[in-house]
Design a binder for these strands. Structure first.
Lengths: 340, 340
DNA sequence: TTGTAAGCGTTATCAT
DNA sequence: ATGATAACGCTTACAA
């Protein structure tokens, strides 16, 4: 198949200059006479010339592209973060690769391959092993970790978890709830681990005896439903459930309904993330809002700044979250929405 | 900054062969003696050699990457489709670029740039002008259109709209609703246009007089809310609303509540897409389910098959949708979920 | 200010 | 079966 786009040689010939001059014009160098610049520009236009990306990459040792690695795209969390990332990166002329690991064993390999075609990478959550991240950093590829504790010299971007979890838990305690149980797997993700830690700290600070152990749950509604049901059917019933995310909380809401428990009368339930469902569900779900797009955009900013500046000391950014109080956590007036 | 990865030259030297042989081994050619193959393999391992993507692209005239162009990632629709695409493409070793146009004027330019770094492109909905698509096809870049009518020789993947819209509308008519109004902008997207056409056909077929004109609405809940409110407050009230998507329908649901209209008693409301909210909202929203991931995966399959085979005649795939009947459309038993 | 030429790291076509 | 070597299309010293 013949190449259909024109090359720098054709432009040079047409403009009566060398390819170096074309390259300079095209790169916006100041050292070109206005007259020749004009001739070259015209030739470029006439031939509809756009430099070959591959050649430029090979010669210039850079890709003008970055990548985002995520576990899975379902649910609003990842897609919003990625959207925030894409919007920022793509405005700056960077291509954006996406790679889902889907919990596959090949994930590490795939990420390493991706690293070969980008100038930098954002790694979300627990998608790849620390060793892989370290190897990439060692190879000179900037890495920003999103929602994951610092690894080596990588930058990190996270949303505040600990303080919000404490505030949320304190709020429940103020309402008189006493047997609080955390629903979610603290080992499953750094975020959940921090939320659980904040929860524990608040319960301990209340001096109401030892906190209950957490009840593990996957991240999906069905997981929360099962976990809550199991909790209701065994041992002493809790009077408040702090779920690791909104899906789990909504599953728990359904489980409570299935067991005839009134929320928030018999049982308070809270979530995390403030997905759109949280507002629509009855009763409205008290939760914590994360700045999803800002997480992505911040990661993009950090990455590009690092690529551009050859900065070497890692930076760590913590974005604020907001408690969203609705009705599932106690006897509030039924507020349709919280306006801070 | 020194290059940290090894090159084909270093491997060749170490294995005591020429770079051509390394290239052959690496490409799996059969013409290499097992003995030398083994030596080369070892050298590759020892040096942790991975061929430079840029060099390979430049020499081989291909990118091993494709791109998806979408208008915006918010809402479950696009992210699910893209996830389906990514999953399929990435398993086949193809890199996946994403590009959101966000309704910007620069969209056409951005897409053209993206076209320079991929072997093929998926274009969703009305993100770029037909002329741009035609130019890309002319330049030999395969394009698959998703949820958009055929353009030139591009492949297309779509979900069934017309028949489902007819079935949905017929269902409402059977329940005795007579003043049906379509909520959404048929000019706004090909999908909506088809849904509206199906709606009109069904109403006409019922022989109950001329159909009402559609009431335009954006795609978001707030848009649906406003549009429905306006409809309620002016002219003769409708007794059934067929919304172009679930968000609009849910907005209409809220508007009905705001005006004291009972759903489905005074007013039936239906949506489209079966987003997770549709099931949770009260009353449960009757809607049409699209195979979102399958749309993405099908587009990926078509694109890669076309890239691999140099196929030239366009293919058009229509994926089936499913009517999901809940309670918002009439006096059904309140089914928690539909299991076909 | 502009041109020459040496890379960049592959693939692929010849020879041998 | 293997080795030279010419593309591939650009960037960037270095010269002029």
């Amino acid at each position: 198949m013949p190449r259909t786009t024109s090359t720098i040689y054709q432009v040079a010939r047409r403009a009566g200059v060398s390819i170096a001059t074309v390259s300079r014009v095209q790169a916006g160098h100041e050292t070109v006479t206005p007259a020749t610049r004009e001739r070259v520009r015209r030739a470029i236009d006439e031939l509809d010339y756009r430099p070959s990306r591959s050649a430029r990459q090979l010669a210039g040792q850079r890709h003008d592209a970055t990548g985002v690695v995520f576990p899975d795209l379902s649910g609003p969390y990842y897609s919003e973060v990625i959207l925030g990332y894409e919007e920022k990166a793509s405005v700056e002329g960077q291509g954006v690769f996406i790679l889902g690991t889907h919990g596959r064993a090949q994930a590490n390999l795939r990420v390493a391959e991706l690293a070969d075609r980008v100038d930098g990478l954002v790694v979300m959550g627990r998608t790849v092993d620390d060793a892989v991240v370290e190897r990439m950093l060692g190879a000179g590829i900037p890495v920003v970790m999103l929602a994951r504790p610092p690894v080596a010299a990588a930058d990190t971007v996270r949303a505040e978890n600990d303080a919000s979890a404490r505030a949320l838990t304190a709020h429940l305690l103020e309402h008189g709830y006493r047997r609080l149980v955390f629903l979610g797997d603290p080992m499953g993700s750094p975020d959940v681990s921090e939320r659980h830690a904040g929860f524990m700290a608040a319960v301990r600070a209340a001096g109401i005896g030892a906190p209950e152990p957490p009840v593990a749950s996957g991240f999906r509604e069905a997981d929360g439903y099962r976990a809550a049901l199991h909790l209701f059917d065994t041992g002493a019933p809790p009077d408040a459930l702090v779920a690791a995310n909104d899906e789990i909380a909504i599953g728990a809401l359904r489980a409570a309904r299935a067991r005839g428990l009134a929320v928030p009368g018999d049982l308070a339930i809270t979530g995390w993330d403030d997905i759109s469902l949280a507002e629509h569900v009855r009763p409205g779900l008290t939760t914590v809002r994360q700045p999803l797009r800002a997480l992505g955009a911040t990661a993009a900013g950090l990455l590009m700044e690092r690529i551009g500046s050859h900065r070497t000391e890692p930076r760590h950014v913590l974005l604020p979250t907001a408690l969203v109080v609705r009705t599932s956590c106690g006897t509030h007036a039924d507020q349709e929405e919280q306006r801070p």
